[in-house]
Design a protein around this nucleic acid. Structure first.
Length: 831
RNA sequence: GCCGGGGUGGCGGAAUUGGCAGACGCAUCGGACUUAAAAUCCGGUGGGAUUUUUUCCCGUAUCGGUUCGAGCCCGAUCCCCGGCACCA
């Protein structure tokens, strides 16, 4: 008899069978029993990597488990099919169109997914590069445009010189392009933005009801960066206007001794022209503007500034205070100008020391020992305290003063309460070919005109040269560019930029629920039945980008009236990375393990089992070839056991209700273990998504069965074994779908194991008559004793004190107390 | 600097509500089977001491605290990972 199962044969056979029977097709039903589990769809690079195998294995276990528990499960898959690699491949190889390249890759990746035995409903497959899909991406853009949520403006934007396109703030990491790690430049360009900032507060508040990892919510919170403060106007007499600043500390305004403008501030020209130092000042501004972004914005770099020669008036004190320019004030946050309070802000303090500006303390610590004396301050004091040198606000604490000053300023029209965000609007224009064209036509008469909804999609033209040149390749297609104005019928020009691919992926989860809808991106009824996604699974690297955008889109879609939901993903499991030798797998490090090789050597079930067993899903997983061997060994162990007895048990009709009545002691042990395992596996999947411990529980069960076999030898109870085998296979089915299906049929079943019901555990079976109680003396384990489970405390104590060990350790000592924890332990405390 | 997560055998990890630390797997050692090996099956394996089928001590990054009892709670420190950062 063979000691290893023929995984190649078995896996191929069942994959075909499942496909032929359309086993994983999802019917649309009312909301009641629906369950939507979704893994982040991949970019079709052409090959699956281990990270993919991990995320899809996790999703597949959940989908199969929920199905077996009687739910109507939606488990779809698709392709994030627009993007640069397709274009780069076309440029590099010259003779292949991005479309061809993309669809070729989709085909091979889909085959790999099928080889993994993933239970997708392929009839719902979507690809963002398909005109049937991007038509609706464009439709959403137009809806946003009409609702003032999409707008075009000129501003300094991030430019990646390698990708030759602009990037959103979210796509710039440490001043580098998120994709290619090239240092980004600044460019003044007119670009399309989506008004995500309108939803900043909702994006923050929505976190409350999300069952997401805390760290991810924190990341998004940091990214949104909400701060409450005031916008305050400082009059500048000489140019007869007012300089606005944003501050979170209006309570310190009596200590504002100077003002600082960003070198890009629009007032500068007026302020400095004609001043005796004008040339020096202009040279300084130029120098700062030429500074690299990194240098400019690093807190470690030196603060540099120059006096403009002008003064503003502190609106509360009436004092004249100098206006300076400095590198440490940024144009893209707040108003690009600050009131400087050196006594209570470390940055202002450092700058004031360097340029010898006045430092005036206006907050005094409650702790008198730390009393601040103006000229002797060594560092800024920014903690709590009470006000001094602040006229009628003296002696108020910081919080009271904030409110009082804010009220008064609002009344006198000096300033207004304002909330500021770090979050910027989402820049979606890309100067590249392989994306959804922005559906806008520019007309000399009518201006910026959206393409009418009935004319969508605006198709990508084929006759273009892809080589990036800083402007979109679409500019080179006359047939594309020239279009009639939808309003007046005159000749207009199309927008030539395409959309950021994150736009495509911000709503794909809604298309799956109604993929063939020709009239709308999806119908409201279907959304009601399926949306939101119950369980989303994907990499932590999307914590900010994709997940923030998708949440934003969902809120916009809600406001368009297409759903009533305002969060797309109720639960999110952020799965960890797959590492090799402690590092992320990458070509440059040469530590890549190719999934197809593992599939070839061990099969899909082994690959899935290992990846689920090696680590809990949210943690990083260290790849181990020996570990894969181990998982394979376990599956073979299951196979051998069933293979050996299947002829004996396949015709046995198990009497489910009666099974426990005739068990001998050995069988009873296995029977209890089986039901304990059912409980453990069910709870581990259902409540914790801890597949590693679920699998280890099944391993323990299999060990127990082997033990039973070797103890009983020729005296096996085959009806009981038949019962046990069935349950065992059901428990393992979500993890190893092919092997369990094969064995399921071998033991005499006709229909698929994956349509069967998840086993339930028998509460009576796992109840123990006797338990082992740990006996401690002064907290140290000294003995163990087996007693009846429901033994009264007093009786248990009596038994404990009769034990020799207990006598030994309590001899000649005073017993202070005895702690009894039923079913667990007894601790005798002595002195 | 601020915020969040983490640190357990040779390794991956378990301990779910403060109650037997190290489940399960890997690696390794021993036994069975074999002419032999592989595969398989059975068993040992945190460290130390010891009278070695015994008994005890130490042990969850470090130090301290709370508690009858701490891997888990509290305080301080060190280290690792992630996010944000001249954000006013």
């Amino acid at each position: 008899m063979a000691s290893h199962y023929d995984f190649k044969n078995i896996e191929g056979k069942w994959q075909k069978e499942w496909e032929n029977n359309n086993l994983y097709h999802t019917k649309n039903k009312d909301k009641k029993d629906n369950y939507y589990v979704l893994e982040m769809f991949p970019y079709p690079s052409g090959k699956l990597h281990m990270g993919h195998v991990r995320v899809y294995s996790i999703g597949d276990v959940i989908a199969r488990f929920k199905r077996m528990n009687g739910l109507n499960v939606l488990h779809p898959m698709g392709w994030d099919a627009f993007g640069l690699p397709a274009e780069n491949a076309a440029i590099k190889h010259g003779n292949i169109h991005p479309r061809e390249w993309t669809w070729k890759n989709i085909k091979s990746m889909k085959e790999q997914m099928k080889a993994l035995g993933l239970s997708y409903d392929w009839e719902r497959e979507v690809a963002t590069a398909d005109p049937d899909y991007y038509k609706w991406t464009q439709w959403f853009f137009i809806k946003m445009f009409k609702n003032d949520l999409a707008y075009k403006k000129e501003q300094a934007v991030n430019w990646c010189p390698s990708c030759e396109t602009v990037l959103a703030n979210e796509q710039v990491v440490n001043n580098k392009c998120e994709r290619c790690e090239t240092v980004v430049d600044n460019k003044e360009l007119e670009q399309w933005f989506l008004k995500i900032t309108d939803y900043a507060d909702q994006l923050l508040e929505g976190h409350q009801k999300l069952d997401w990892p805390q760290r991810v919510k924190t990341m998004q919170k940091n990214w949104i960066g909400k701060s409450k403060g005031m916008r305050i106007k400082f009059p500048i007499k000489e140019i007869n206007s007012k300089l606005e600043v944003f501050t979170t500390r209006p309570d310190t305004i009596y200590g504002a001794t100077y003002m600082v403008l960003a070198p890009e501030h629009p007032y500068l020209d007026q302020l400095i022209s004609g001043k005796e130092n004008e040339k020096r000042i202009r040279d300084f501004i130029k120098k700062i503007k030429d500074q690299k972004e990194e240098e400019r914005t690093s807190p470690e770099s030196n603060k540099e500034g120059i006096f403009t020669g002008s003064y503003a008036t502190n609106p509360m004190t009436g004092e004249k205070i100098p206006i300076l320019i400095a590198n440490y004030v940024l144009m893209n946050y707040g108003t690009g100008a600050i009131m400087a309070v050196p006594a209570h802000d470390q940055r202002d303090f450092d700058f004031a020391k360097k340029y010898d500006l006045e430092i005036k303390a206006v907050i005094q610590p409650h702790d008198l020992e730390r009393k601040l004396i103006g000229s002797k301050i060594k560092e800024a004091y920014s903690e709590d305290g009470y006000l001094i040198n602040s006229d009628k606000y003296n002696n108020l604490n910081v919080k009271e003063a904030f409110e009082a000053i804010a009220d008064d300023m609002e009344e006198k029209n000096i300033g207004n309460r304002e909330v500021n965000y770090r979050l910027r609007d989402w820049l979606i224009s890309r100067q590249r070919y392989w994306g959804a064209p922005i559906p806008i036509i520019y007309c000399n008469q009518c201006g910026t005109v959206p393409v009418p909804e009935e004319d969508l999609p605006v198709m990508l033209p084929d006759d273009v040269e892809f080589s990036p040149s800083g402007i979109s390749p679409l500019a080179k297609s006359d047939q594309f560019v020239n279009a009639k104005c939808p309003k007046c019928g005159g000749m207009g020009k199309r927008e030539i930029d395409t959309m950021d691919t994150f736009v495509d992926s911000s709503w794909y989860f809604l298309r799956y629920i109604d993929p063939d809808n020709q009239h709308l991106p999806f119908s409201k009824d279907r959304a009601r039945d399926w949306f939101p996604v119950d369980q989303y699974i994907g990499g932590i690297e999307h914590a900010i980008l994709h997940l923030l955008y998708a949440r934003f889109f969902t809120k916009v879609i809600r406001d368009l009236g297409l759903t009533i939901e305002d969060e797309p993903f109720t639960k999110w499991l952020a799965q960890g990375m797959v590492l090799k030798d402690g590092e992320k797998m990458s070509k440059s490090k040469g530590n890549v393990v190719d999934p197809s090789k593992i599939l070839d050597e061990y099969g899909a079930d082994t690959a899935r089992l290992f990846i689920l067993f090696a680590s809990p899903p949210e943690k990083d997983l260290e790849w181990s070839d020996e570990g894969v061997e181990g998982s394979n060994r376990f599956l073979n162990r299951v196979w051998r056991f069933v293979d050996e007895i299947c002829d004996e048990i396949k015709d046995i009709q198990v009497n489910q209700g009666q099974i426990e009545t005739n068990l001998d002691d050995e069988s009873k042990k296995v029977y209890r273990k089986l039901h304990e395992t059912i409980q453990k596996v069910t709870e581990d999947i259902e409540n914790r998504l801890n597949f590693n411990t679920a699998i280890s529980a099944v391993m323990e069960l299999v060990n127990e069965i082997y033990h039973y076999q070797s103890t009983k030898e020729d005296d096996l109870d085959f009806e009981f074994l038949s019962y046990t085998t069935e349950k065992l296979l059901l428990l393992l089915a979500p993890f190893a779908p092919h092997l369990t299906e094969e064995l399921w049929h071998k033991i005499g079943n006709q229909s698929s194991i994956h349509l069967d019901k998840w086993p339930e555990y028998n509460k009576k079976a796992i109840k123990r008559d006797q338990v082992t109680i740990v006996i401690q003396v002064n907290g140290k384990v000294r003995d163990r004793v087996k007693v009846d489970t429901e033994i009264p405390k007093e009786e248990l104590k009596e038994i404990v004190f009769k034990q020799d060990k207990v006598k030994k350790y309590t001899e000649n000592k005073e017993i202070i107390k005895t702690i009894v924890i039923p079913k667990k332990l007894v601790n005798v405390v002595v002195k």
